[in-house]
Computed example of a mutant assay.
Amino acid sequence: MAEKKATTKKAAETKEAKAPAAKKATATKKAAVKAEVTAVNAENIGFKAGDVYQALAAAQKALNVKEIAKAAKITEEETLLGLGWLFKEGKLLSTDDNKIVLA
Score class of each variant (00 low, 15 high):
53 Y>F: 13
101 V>N: 12
100 I>W: 02
92 L>Y: 00
72 A>M: 11
24 K>G: 15
72 A>L: 03
55 A>P: 06
73 K>G: 14
3 E>D: 14
11 A>S: 09
99 K>S: 05
9 K>A: 13
1 M>R: 14
70 K>I: 01
70 K>G: 13
82 G>P: 08
30 K>R: 10
56 L>R: 05
12 A>Y: 06
35 A>I: 08
78 E>C: 14
63 L>F: 13
54 Q>F: 10
69 A>W: 02
95 T>N: 08
84 G>Q: 01
102 L>P: 00
95 T>R: 06
95 T>M: 04
30 K>A: 13
19 A>G: 10
52 V>E: 04
68 I>E: 01
22 A>D: 00
47 F>A: 15
86 L>G: 04
91 K>W: 00
20 P>N: 08
60 Q>L: 03
74 I>D: 00
16 E>G: 15
45 I>S: 15
62 A>T: 11
92 L>Q: 00
100 I>K: 02
100 I>R: 03
61 K>H: 04
50 G>L: 04
60 Q>E: 09
14 T>P: 06
4 K>S: 06
12 A>F: 04
61 K>L: 07
23 K>F: 05
54 Q>A: 15
11 A>L: 12
32 A>P: 09
32 A>R: 08
51 D>E: 08
1 M>W: 05
50 G>P: 14
87 F>T: 12
65 V>Q: 11
91 K>P: 12
64 N>W: 03
89 E>K: 12
23 K>H: 07
81 L>F: 11
27 A>D: 01
7 T>D: 02
59 A>D: 06
99 K>G: 01
16 E>Q: 15
87 F>Q: 09
68 I>N: 06
25 A>W: 03
99 K>F: 00
47 F>H: 15
84 G>F: 00
53 Y>S: 13
56 L>H: 05
94 S>D: 09
78 E>I: 11
84 G>L: 01
9 K>E: 08
9 K>L: 13
9 K>C: 10
73 K>L: 05
58 A>H: 06
77 E>Q: 10
31 A>M: 02
35 A>N: 11
95 T>P: 07
1 M>T: 12
15 K>W: 02
81 L>M: 02
88 K>L: 06
97 D>Y: 01
62 A>E: 03
92 L>S: 02
32 A>E: 08
13 E>R: 10
79 T>I: 03
18 K>S: 11
84 G>T: 06
42 A>Y: 05
3 E>L: 03
23 K>C: 04
74 I>S: 02
67 E>S: 09
42 A>I: 10
21 A>M: 15
21 A>R: 14
5 K>W: 04
82 G>D: 00
31 A>W: 02
6 A>F: 03
37 V>W: 02
92 L>A: 04
102 L>C: 02
46 G>T: 15
5 K>E: 03
90 G>R: 05
42 A>K: 03
100 I>N: 00
60 Q>R: 14
57 A>H: 09
76 E>T: 13
10 K>A: 04
19 A>K: 13
62 A>C: 13
